[in-house]
């Protein structure tokens, strides 16, 4: 019998509350949503898993990471390469080296391989990244993003570059991604409240002080980094297993900023913040995109305004940073909003 601390118990309560919200949104979409809306909500859930993967490292170690979309891409491509049937790969990747076009695996095994590859890569890179401090670490993650993208574009014989890598069987539907997102929420929340998570957060507040108390900062950062990468790989797999086609473009700067804005708006220090920010921006942007097309509102024909969604996204980042640098949630998790103030 594992004995949980008070913060871990309240963490489980918080995770359960968030899970209830995720289930409610998912069920409502399944019953009332059109095909297009289901697709939209699916991609919101995939982005939620990305933001959670980002939160594990960025929220606890408080080092800005810009390479998350690259890890998502690695997971997506690795799973896609394994799971796509041979006959399709023979057509789409005729020049694939190392016999990559000569086999195909079942989805579960493919996902496991993709996660393992991403984790190993993240571990090797993490050995260097965790030793750097704020801006230096951010630059190295930026370098990782650029390098991974360049490899995707350059090895067209494996990744097809900016062209679509097609023929991935559709394995997941909305119910699956809701389940996986809930799992990710629980993992992130338990990590945050675990001994490791608390020590890591302490080291972010005061690096020298935490080290003096015996916190092994590099080791903890590495654990959070690899755990984050695994969650990102899962997000990539969910993306590939639903859409059926992937290309290099969605795993670059635009996606990096989109997901970063989600985490910042909600508040990177908490899991609740990650969920809130993702939902606000996913559904908010859809509203702005509607305005972009120049709709007729209240009898007034609005002009077409390409770029409005970009302006909104940038403005969200700037305003959050100016008025609430810790995001909407700050240091509060969902259950503290309901709890009576007894402490």
């Amino acid at each position: 019998m594992i004995r949980l601390s008070a913060s871990q118990r309240s963490g489980l309560v918080g995770a359960a509350l968030l899970a209830a919200v995720l289930v409610a949104v998912g069920v409502a979409t399944l019953y009332f949503g059109s095909r297009y809306q289901i697709r939209l909500v699916y991609s919101a859930y995939v982005n939620l898993i990305v933001v959670l993967g980002l939160q594990v490292f960025m929220g606890n170690a408080r080092i800005t990471n810009l390479s998350h979309s690259a890890f998502m891409g690695i997971g997506a491509y690795a799973a896609a390469l394994c799971v796509t049937p041979e006959n399709i790969k023979k057509i789409s990747l005729p020049a694939a080296p190392w016999g990559l076009a000569d086999f195909s695996l079942d989805p579960v095994l493919s996902a496991a391989i993709a996660i393992a590859i991403t984790a190993v890569l993240a571990f090797l890179l993490g050995l260097f990244i965790v030793r750097l401090t704020s801006i230096g670490a951010t630059i190295v993650t930026l370098a990782v993003l650029v390098i991974v993208h360049a490899v995707f574009l350059y090895r067209t014989d494996i990744f097809k570059g900016n062209q679509a890598f097609f023929g991935i069987p559709q394995v997941f539907d909305l119910a699956w991604v809701v389940g996986i997102a809930i799992l990710a929420v629980i993992v992130c929340r338990l990590f945050r409240e675990s001994r490791w998570g608390i020590q890591l957060r302490a080291s972010a507040d005061d690096e020298v002080g935490a080290a003096a108390m015996g916190v092994e900062i590099y080791k903890l950062r590495l654990i959070a980094w690899v755990l984050g990468a695994v969650i990102l790989a899962v997000a990539g797999i969910c993306y590939a297993y639903f859409l059926g086609t992937i290309s290099a473009r969605p795993f670059y700067f635009n996606h990096v900023f989109l997901t970063l804005a989600m985490l910042i708006l909600g508040g990177m220090r908490t899991v609740t913040g990650a969920v809130l920010g993702t939902f606000l921006i996913s559904f908010g942007l859809e509203g702005v995109r509607y305005l972009e097309t120049g709709p007729v509102l209240l009898g007034i024909e609005l002009p077409e305004a390409l770029g409005l969604s970009g302006i909104a996204l940038g403005a969200v980042i700037v305003l959050t940073m100016a008025f609430r640098p810790t995001g909407i949630m700050g240091n509060r998790e969902i259950e503290t909003l309901f709890a009576r103030k007894t402490f």
């Binding site: 910042i264 969604s309 970009g310 980042i317 700037v318």
Partner: peptide
Amino acid sequence: LTAFGVSIVLQN
């Protein structure tokens, strides 16, 4: 991050 935000706003 603020500067990134400003940059996205101006580009758009």
